[in-house]
């Protein structure tokens, strides 16, 4: 290899390394614990009676299509449901062994994580965690790779597969555009007749939750789900039974999802910076005293080909 070519390779490698390094620093930020004034909602499942009025309010506020079964039809509880393109929040019923009530309800929607997996997995940055604590979505740039749905540890985002020309991710946005931005609680909280949902600053809600548990320890299982799970979520749950009995995943750990990915992301700048020099070096060693085809073969005479040592 000519020295000039070697320099060219090194230069290209250096440029690549700079680019990779820039990405690397952007990625290597420490874990983010949420905006100080981020809002949240405390869900007290001991108060929920499964009236589904939150579902109805959400449907109206977000201008969703009319559901197949009306919101006063309680037969929907016979099957566990998940959020999808037609429902940004659903209430499910759970048969609980130890509770005296036997049946409990839990509303689910986007939990508005402090460090959302959907946001960190999105390659066009369609998601934003706002100062108010909402995780919102920009449908104008979404490509539809659905990586966010793979990444979400709570299986929340739905996709409007039925749309051929403008399919989008559908998930709860904390009523950001119509309410949260103006300091108002989301529609579901507003309508709840049981005050099962409490809107407030996330910091305060954590205190409230622990106070309720301390004041009436018989009523609650001592855990605030969402305080620490996957780096903390904006929506918090307290309950009379352990979270797993209400189908809340207890195996998620307290690290944000992106922590699992950081080991790989750390190797990226290394590969970008080391490989060019390594492989150019190997090339120099491997082709020492040999023809190496760097230039067009026509520049060599046949005799020079394969001048093996």
């Amino acid at each position: 290899m000519k020295r000039r070519d070697f320099l060219k390779v090194c230069l290209a490698g250096g440029a690549a390394a700079t680019f990779g390094g820039a990405c690397g620093t952007a990625r290597a930020g420490g874990s983010f614990e949420g905006y100080p004034d981020g809002m949240g909602v405390l869900v007290d499942t001991t108060r929920c009676i499964g009236c589904r009025s939150c579902e109805a309010a959400c449907n109206k506020e977000q201008k969703m299509p009319e559901p197949k079964k009306p919101f006063d039809d309680m037969s929907v509880f016979n099957q566990p449901r998940r959020t999808d393109e037609t429902a940004l929040t659903v209430v499910n019923r759970y048969e609980v062994k130890e509770s005296s009530r036997g049946q409990m309800y839990r509303k689910q929607q986007c939990n508005h994580c402090n460090e959302p997996a959907c946001l960190t997995s999105c390659f066009v940055n369609a998601y934003t965690k706002t100062r108010e604590g909402a995780v919102i979505y920009n449908g104008d740039i979404c490509v539809g790779c659905r990586n966010c749905m793979i990444a979400c540890p709570f299986n929340i985002p739905g996709y409007s597969y039925s749309s051929a020309f403008n399919p989008l991710v559908k998930k709860c946005i904390f009523c950001y555009d119509t309410r949260l931005k103006y300091g108002k609680p989301p529609a579901c909280v507003d309508i709840c007749p049981q005050e099962a949902l409490t809107f407030g600053h996330r910091k305060d809600l954590i205190k409230t939750a622990h106070e309720r548990i301390r004041e009436t320890p018989d009523r609650y299982y001592d855990h605030v789900y969402g305080e620490k799970e996957v780096g903390g979520t904006g929506w918090l749950y307290i309950s009379s039974v352990s979270p797993d009995q209400l189908a809340m995943d207890t195996s998620l750990g307290n690290e944000p999802i992106i922590s699992n990915v950081k080991e790989f992301l750390g190797t990226v700048p290394m590969v970008l910076s080391i490989w060019p020099a390594l492989f150019s070096g190997i090339h120099l060693l491997a082709t020492r005293n040999k023809d190496h085809h760097d230039n067009d073969t026509s520049t060599h005479t046949p005799g020079q080909e394969d001048g093996t040592p």
Binding site: S121, F123, V124, I141, V143, I258, V261, F264
Partner: peptide, 17 residues
Amino acid sequence: RLPYPMVVSFGPAAVLF
């Protein structure tokens, strides 16, 4: 929208990027 991650909006923290 396949070219979007190249020209319209960047999500450099994502592996898919």
